[in-house]
Amino acid sequence: MPVQRDTRQHIISTSRDVILGRGFSAVGLSQLLSVAGVPKGSFYHYFKSKENFGEALLEDYFDSYLNRLDELLQPDGRPAADRIMSFWGLWTDPESVCEFGARCLVVKLGAEVSDLSESMRAVLREGTERIVARLSQCLMEGMRDGSLPKDLKPVQAALALYDLWLGATLMTKLRHDTHAFKNAQLVTRQLLRLD
Score class of each variant (00 low, 15 high):
2 P>G: 08
3 V>Y: 10
4 Q>S: 12
4 Q>C: 00
6 D>Q: 13
6 D>E: 13
11 I>T: 05
11 I>R: 09
12 I>L: 11
14 T>H: 02
18 V>Y: 01
22 R>H: 15
27 V>D: 04
27 V>Q: 04
30 S>L: 04
31 Q>D: 08
32 L>Q: 03
32 L>R: 05
33 L>I: 06
33 L>Y: 05
34 S>N: 08
34 S>I: 00
35 V>A: 09
35 V>H: 01
36 A>Q: 06
37 G>M: 02
40 K>D: 06
40 K>M: 07
40 K>L: 02
40 K>C: 03
41 G>R: 08
43 F>H: 02
44 Y>M: 05
44 Y>K: 05
46 Y>E: 03
46 Y>R: 02
46 Y>G: 05
47 F>E: 05
48 K>Y: 00
49 S>P: 01
51 E>A: 04
53 F>N: 03
54 G>R: 01
55 E>N: 05
56 A>K: 14
57 L>E: 04
59 E>S: 10
62 F>G: 04
64 S>I: 02
65 Y>A: 05
66 L>F: 03
67 N>G: 13
68 R>P: 00
71 E>N: 10
71 E>T: 13
71 E>Q: 14
78 R>K: 14
79 P>N: 10
80 A>R: 11
80 A>I: 14
81 A>T: 11
82 D>R: 14
84 I>H: 05
84 I>P: 08
86 S>T: 15
91 W>D: 00
91 W>Q: 08
92 T>S: 14
93 D>V: 01
95 E>I: 06
95 E>G: 03
97 V>L: 10
99 E>H: 15
102 A>D: 10
103 R>S: 15
104 C>W: 08
105 L>A: 09
105 L>E: 07
107 V>P: 08
112 E>C: 12
113 V>G: 10
113 V>C: 10
114 S>T: 15
116 L>M: 14
122 A>P: 01
122 A>N: 10
122 A>R: 13
125 R>W: 11
127 G>R: 06
128 T>P: 00
129 E>L: 06
130 R>E: 14
131 I>N: 04
133 A>L: 11
133 A>W: 08
137 Q>G: 12
139 L>E: 12
139 L>N: 11
142 G>Y: 02
144 R>V: 13
149 P>R: 13
150 K>F: 07
150 K>P: 06
150 K>R: 14
150 K>A: 15
153 K>M: 04
155 V>D: 13
163 D>A: 14
166 L>V: 12
166 L>Y: 06
170 L>P: 00
170 L>D: 08
170 L>H: 10
171 M>Q: 15
175 R>K: 13
177 D>S: 14
178 T>C: 07
180 A>V: 11
180 A>P: 12
182 K>E: 14
183 N>Y: 14
186 L>I: 12
186 L>A: 13
189 R>C: 09
192 L>N: 03
195 D>E: 14
195 D>N: 11
